[in-house]
Design a binder for these strands. Structure first.
Lengths: 218, 218
DNA sequence: TATTATTTTTAGATTAGTCTAAATTTTATT
DNA sequence: AATAAAATTTAGACTAATCTAAAAATAATA
């Protein structure tokens, strides 16, 4: 059995290492977990002991298959709960994260699978992030950043890179949601800001905004 | 903020002391929590420090208003989640307890209240136990044990006193659920077993069974 | 009421997870 | 390659929650 803390570390490693394939440094784990490197080292040793990560001193860690699966299932639960909160309990996409952080640790396979069924087996969460299946596998949909779209091209919003409350509220305010059609009207070479069309409105957005919105060409 | 452990102790005190009115002994708390009396004493001191219980050495504890409310809200969440699991996720009444024990600690007022609304503001959980309202108040419905029903009388099943998996499975097997109509046909003075009619079937039940089923006269 | 039994508390130890500060290893730079 | 900088680990300490064993208080009984 994994503790809450172990699950959170595994999840951090999973996210930093792109689903757990890449070696991850102690410092990056500590940073993501908002703890000290020494705490991260302690936990890494514990996870290595349990064969959930591969670890050689000073060389960082990678998830084992066992560790990857645990992390992926936590992510699966997190994203399913997010869908539940939005679809069934009237949460907005900027309100779901903190609650899902708690719900993702509930241990019950039946609960997870029934929830999945209740929601109609969704493949993405309210931010456009993919939901791992029961075996912890993800079907990655190709998506690019809005900043990569050329002048004159059409695209559809399919996800966010930054899912902070502030950013999501900004998008809400400007009527950008998953599925919204966008078109790039012009770009400003000086600061890489761009003028875009949202449905029939026009809006000038900074490069920071354009760099955090995933779209697909239409 | 209360920790998971604090919440569980408060809930234990709440349940032992009938919604927290009655003074509760250290040993009874330890027993319910499946820990040692010394551990219970330690936690009692912590709860007293936080003004969640009134405590005088060797005299047991009672919940303060603050403590009572926290405990009642945990119970409210537990029972709402039980309804959710049964109504929305196809759990049976003997499967819900362990998962609800986890879900009851999720902290989000919005979650609790939206869940309440999704379920249509239920007043009882799947075992017939009352669900406290937002202020932690319960409307107690009068209910008596099946063993108190006289020969020839009709009644309706409104709850269980023992909600163990074994007992609930026994009831399922014998087609007894909340709302089921029962009639007492005869009683055996020797062992207090009784013959009852369930819908059109007949069944002999032991005194143990009759002492754990809540009914109301019909 | 004196003595015994029971309940409760205290003292001291243990584990998980965290921290600071110092030591060590790796990486970068002269 | 030698040295400086950065990253990582170790050592030792702290807190929350638990435990065992012993001491103290209360309750029960002779």
């Amino acid at each position: 059995m994994t503790t809450l803390s172990e699950e959170n570390y595994l999840k951090a490693i999973y996210h930093i290492g792109k689903q757990g394939n890449i070696a991850v440094s102690t410092n990056s784990i500590a940073e993501k977990m908002r703890t000290k490197a020494s705490s991260a080292t302690d936990m890494i040793k514990k996870l290595a002991e349990k064969k959930l990560v591969d670890y050689k001193r000073y060389q960082g860690v990678t998830l084992t298959e066992k560790g990857r699966l645990i992390a992926a299932i936590v992510v699966r639960k997190h994203r399913l709960w997010e869908v539940f909160l939005v679809e069934k309990l009237n949460f907005s996409w900027d309100e779901v994260h903190d609650v899902a952080e708690q719900l993702e640790h509930i241990k019950s396979e039946k609960l997870t699978n029934e929830l999945d069924a209740l929601l109609g087996f969704p493949t993405e969460d309210p931010h456009g992030d993919p939901i791992p299946d029961k075996e912890g596998y993800i079907k990655e949909t190709e998506k690019i950043l809005l900043s990569q779209i050329n002048i004159g091209e059409q695209c559809i919003c399919v996800g966010v890179k930054d899912s902070s409350t502030e950013y999501l509220k900004y998008l809400d305010k400007n009527k950008v949601a998953l599925g919204t059609s966008l078109a790039v009207i012009s770009k400003e070479p000086f600061d890489n800001s761009m003028r875009i069309a949202i449905e029939s409105e026009q809006l000038v957005i900074s490069n920071v905004v354009a760099n955090n919105l995933f779209v697909k060409r239409d």
